[in-house]
Computed example of a mutant assay.
Amino acid sequence: MSKRIDVKDLDIYYGDFHAVKNVSMTIEPRSVTAFIGPSGCGKSTVLRTLNRMHEVIPGAYVKGEVAIDGTNLYGRGVDPVDVRRQVGMVFQRPNPFPTMTIKENVLAGVRLNSKRISSKAADELTEKALRGANLWNEVKDRLDKPGSGLSGGQQQRLCIARAIAIQPEVILMDEPCSALDPISTLAIEDLINELKDRYTVVIVTHNMQQAARVSDKTGFFNLEATGKPGELVEYDSTQNIFNNPGQQATEDYISGRFG
């Protein structure tokens, strides 16, 4: 399932504001890549370009290329809805649909894409997605209960199950543990390690220990000053970023000298 992502000479704009400049990187399939850096440096903005979510903001656009297995997501005639089907997204705060049951939440993305699905297929897909999110055993006896009744960590895994159900090839996670307690955070981190066997996973995190624990490669983003565009300072194996960074700015951030 998982795909390789090639980002080349990417510049991101919100109207006249140049948010991020000149990002180039290759994200390997079946791996976890972490984006780290201080607030406002553009890491979440870059993440949202990987499935064209940033275009939801009026006036937002990019220059450059984001390709998945050689196909430019910004090429002429490419449908953003198809891109978002291929590249799933999990947000910072768990956001199950409050009026839907657990099962309805899992199937929401499938039904939004107007896919007709039999009752038997819906049951099978629900179980498969919840198992993939390590949630099935906890909720299998209450699938008809509201998703909003789950704990915060369970809600986040329900959102991951919802993302898995549309059968993406890439999963993006924007600070998925920032609203969770340590035990729920550990459950999500364990799940991320399992997901990379099937998907390409990209995660934004402010928690450097988390980046060190879960990722294979890490990109450090920074910005020169307020109002200046963010940029990718260094992109390397996570081991090198944390133990032998090539840039002084990376070492300063990792060691807590700034940020």
Rank of each mutant, 00 (worst) to 15 (best):
G15W: 02
T205G: 04
E124W: 09
A225P: 05
Q248T: 15
V110T: 12
I102A: 13
G59S: 11
L232K: 09
R93C: 04
G88P: 12
D9Y: 09
F17G: 06
A19Y: 04
A163F: 11
V56T: 13
N22C: 06
G64C: 01
E127C: 08
F97H: 06
G246C: 04
V233I: 15
I254P: 01
L10Q: 11
A133S: 12
I57K: 05
V78T: 09
F258K: 10
I183T: 15
I27A: 00
G227W: 00
V7I: 15
G75N: 07
K115Q: 15
L195I: 10
P94S: 14
I254E: 01
T49D: 02
N22Q: 12
T99C: 03
D236L: 09
L143F: 10
A249M: 10
G153A: 13
C177G: 05
G132W: 06
R93I: 08
V66T: 11
I27Y: 00
S178E: 08
A211D: 13
D144H: 07
P168E: 13
K43I: 09
G77V: 07
M100D: 13
R198A: 09
L112C: 11
M25H: 09
K3V: 12
N22Y: 05
L158H: 01
G230V: 05
A133F: 11
P96D: 04
F221M: 03
I36Y: 05
M89W: 08
R157L: 14
V46Y: 03
S39W: 04
V62L: 00
K196G: 03
A179F: 14
G64R: 00
L50F: 06
G230N: 02
P38F: 02
A133W: 11
M89G: 07
F258H: 13
D123Q: 13
G227I: 06
E189D: 14
L107F: 03
Q155M: 15
N137C: 05
L223F: 07
E234G: 10
C177H: 03
S2P: 13
R111M: 10
S237I: 04
P245C: 03
G77A: 09
I171K: 01
G149D: 14
D181H: 09
E169R: 04
